[in-house]
């Protein structure tokens, strides 16, 4: 049995190793973008079933953003929604035999967490300005600045570890069970992995939105006097 924590590059582009997770991510990107182009190519005011489903997804993402932030979802929709879609598809790619989900490797969740970290800074500065964003670290009082800075890293790290751990463990368990009884036995675990993958995608996207919203709200003008 291969060690799921140990991945080897598929090929080398000069000094750059191309890992399977990157190739699978490219495939996922192709599928998602291809479906998006195919879908939005024939948008109409009177939607068909597929367009209705797509609009339902957009509406659900907007509703979640609105519930979490209380703000208009348009600025956050692409980032949060894409995170959710990509993580969901990546997690569910484990159903394809021979495919290791990109999120089951360290690098992909780390990259996603890094993007969330950057987006927190981006949206925080965009919403409250640099001063406002930095003042958010001094809440509720300046003594909390070190802890708030530490928290901004640890919560990102927890996101990364949570996603990686859940997906990797699922893939690991399926691989172990599959090696012991390859026929039919892994199916319940795969179904559970589907649920875990959806829940983890949802949690990651919601947490990202919560952190972004927190950064924006902390730097908002009404919190300056606090």
């Amino acid at each position: 049995m291969d060690n799921p924590l140990q991945t080897l590059p598929l090929f080398q582009l000069g000094p750059v190793p191309i890992m399977p997770a990157v190739v699978v991510t490219w495939a996922i990107m192709l599928v998602i973008v291809g479906l998006a182009i195919l879908l939005t190519h024939r948008l109409s005011v009177v939607p068909g079933p597929v367009q209705a489903a797509a609009e339902l997804l957009v509406t659900a993402v907007d509703a979640q953003i609105r519930d979490v932030t209380g703000a208009e979802p348009a600025p956050y929709r692409a980032f949060v929604g894409t995170l959710f879609l990509f993580i969901l598809v990546a997690n569910w790619s484990s159903l394809i035999p021979g495919i290791t989900p990109p999120t089951a490797t360290l690098e992909t969740p780390a990259a996603l967490a890094a993007l969330v970290f950057v987006s927190i800074i981006w949206f925080g500065v965009k919403g409250a300005g640099v001063g406002g964003f930095l003042r958010g670290f001094a809440l509720p009082n300046p003594a909390m600045i070190p802890l708030n800075i530490l928290e901004s890293f640890t919560r990102i790290f927890s996101m990364f570890v949570r996603l990686f751990g859940n997906v990797m463990s699922g893939a690991f368990v399926i691989a172990i069970v599959g090696s012991l009884a390859a026929l039919l036995v892994p199916i319940p675990l795969m179904v559970l992995d589907l649920l875990t993958g959806a829940v983890q995608a949802y949690i990651f996207a919601i947490l990202a939105m919560v952190f972004i919203s927190s950064a924006v709200k902390k730097g908002a003008p009404e919190n300056k006097e606090t």
């Binding site: 991945t7 997770a21 690098e107 780390a110 990259a111």
Partner: peptide
């Protein structure tokens, strides 16, 4: 367990 920074970068750019 290994951590490939190239892959980290690729995945960040990909996303």
């Amino acid at each position: 367990m290994s951590f490939d920074y190239w892959t980290l970068g690729f995945q960040a750019v990909n996303v």
